[in-house]
Amino acid sequence: MLQLKNIYKWFNTGSNRTFILKDINLDIKQGEFVSIMGPSGSGKSTLLNVMGMLDEPNEGKYIFLDQDVLHMKEKQRSEIYKSHIGFVFQAYHLIDELTVYENIETPLIYQNIKSGERKGMVADMLDRFQIVGKKDLFPNQLSGGQQQLVGIARALIVKPKLILADEPTGNLNSKQGEEIMNIFKELNGEGVTIIQVTHSEKNAEYGSRIIHLLDGRIEKES
């Protein structure tokens, strides 16, 4: 599904060059469930953002679905993540001014899907995560766990092949976290590739593969 080859990322601070990612090589196959772990500041989010094409490396090669994405125009790239990637954030990042229903619906609008069709798709999602009763509430009227469910529903509605989740359970208690992990597991069973960043050993165990980062390097894989 995606390959990273000799990826470097650095920042220039004064005359010093601080490396955040150093020589990352990764090959992730369709259907894998990958967990990225590592201490704070080790570059996990940066790596995830590079994979999600929200950030660019300074050096290296990135192949996504057999396409060299680093040489693409911004527009083409956003076309790819629009249709293939769903993002889930630690801070949920729901749009405060939109209801649950509308938040889930938004990606479909950007994909120019007809309103009748949209209704059905959103209804399916609300059903699946059992939040039909909350569909007219605004994000600030929901608990953190419920907000994250909406965030996942929103990521899933475009039927992505890949889900990128940066500490999806970071703001949740362990019971809520477990629930989210089970949903991921279930999705993975349906064939969706999942890459998550996590601090929790327990959550990492849900994955089929764990990558440990240290100071921007892949320290080990298990």
Binding site: S78, F87, H93, I95, D96, E97, R154, V158
Partner: peptide
């Protein structure tokens, strides 16, 4: 800014 970021990630183009 957050809303802009989210919408972009959800597939919005700048012109939208």
């Amino acid at each position: 800014a957050k809303e802009v970021g989210v919408r972009k990630v959800l597939g919005s183009t700048r012109s939208q």
